[in-house]
């Protein structure tokens, strides 16, 4: 494998992800602008967000100062060393901090000390998977902290906290209506803190860990992708429609654009458990990827 070239490609991936929002996300924010009344606070907010995206791209600087947790999803052909890739990514992150594509964002949890270089125990997050294809595919998400903090997990049947005092019939049961209630509850609670308009990734099923993991993985789908499962596709559309009726709007100032998209997946569960996990992604939905073969980039994704 051409070592220098792959390192450079990782640095370029980080630059693109932090500074240049993918076209499906930008189009979706532009679409939101058309839905808001000209001169309203929602309209002005989306307009200045679009300006911010533009400046970040022109200057190759982070669109958000919280450059987040780098989460890598890597598919490898058989025989390529994961350790080697891992080392390259860590090196690429250090270079990216120097080049200002990333903020030095890793803190020792116990001492509170900032480690400076952007890597440390558990950072970055890298998911490896072997596949049968003959090239490497890497997808990177930079997941901001404000929106990560408003993620939620429900173990069904679950009382919806905001409602439990008023009407016990409104609890979320183990069916799609229960799932819908959990998701709308999570969107409501995220307001103001999650930097709307956002996108939510949802997983139904799994155990606590695999469920959260899958909910985040849902966000590697492009907003243009159509869910192949017709039941989930319908649920996604219903939730997007209803969430936008909540009136929360961009940054929670009020408006019609609360969610840009909903992505739902399902994995199996054991009879005793029924989890609904929700990962919230802010408007700065930083996701990029590449395919790499024979010492060079085959294709940039998104």
């Amino acid at each position: 494998m051409d070592n220098e070239k792959l390192l450079d490609t990782f640095v370029e991936l980080i630059r693109k992800t932090s500074c240049n929002l993918p076209v499906d996300v930008v189009s979706s924010i532009e679409g939101g602008l058309l839905n808001e009344k000209r001169g309203s606070i929602a309209y002005d907010t989306l307009q200045i967000i679009l300006k911010n995206i533009e400046i970040a791209r022109e200057k190759s600087l982070p669109m958000c100062q919280d450059t987040g947790t780098p989460v890598f999803y890597i598919n490898l052909p058989c025989g390529i060393s994961q350790g080697d890739i891992c080392n390259k990514i860590k090196k690429a992150i250090k270079i990216s901090v120097r080049k200002l594509y990333l903020r030095p964002n890793v803190v020792d949890t116990l001492t509170g000390k900032n480690l400076g270089g952007g890597t440390g125990a558990g950072y970055p997050v890298i998911h490896f998977e072997e596949w049968k294809k003959d090239y490497i595919r890497t997808i990177l998400m930079l997941k901001g902290g404000g929106c990560e903090n408003v993620g939620a997990q429900y173990s069904l049947p679950s009382p919806i906290k905001a409602l439990e005092d008023r009407d016990s019939r409104l609890n979320a049961g183990r069916d799609l209506e229960g799932v819908r209630r959990c998701i709308l509850d999570a969107v409501h609670k995220a307001q103001g803190r999650g930097c709307a308009p956002g996108v939510i990734g949802v997983c139904i099923g799994g155990d606590r860990v695999s469920s959260y993991e899958e909910s985040k993985r849902q966000l590697i789908k492009s907003l243009d992708d159509k869910n192949e499962n017709p039941v989930l596709y319908k649920l996604e559309r219903e939730i997007a429609r209803d969430a936008n009726k909540l009136g929360i709007g961009p940054m929670g100032f009020g408006g019609r654009t609360t969610l840009l998209g909903v992505k739902i997946g399902s994995i199996c569960r054991i009879p005793a458990s029924y989890f609904v996990s929700i990962t919230y992604m802010c408007w700065a939905y930083r996701r990029r990827g590449f395919e790499y073969k024979g010492g060079k980039v085959k294709k940039w994704l998104y």
Binding site: I49, I55, A56, L61, M63, C282
Partner: peptide, 27 residues
């Protein structure tokens, strides 16, 4: 506005000083 890092950075005309940089780290 959350995430408005570039628009707001352009409003900063000068960094006058910094305190507790060594102790707390840059962010």
């Amino acid at each position: 506005i959350g995430g408005l890092a570039q628009v707001l950075a352009e409003c900063v005309v000068d960094v006058k000083d910094v305190f507790m940089l060594k102790e707390f780290g840059s962010p």
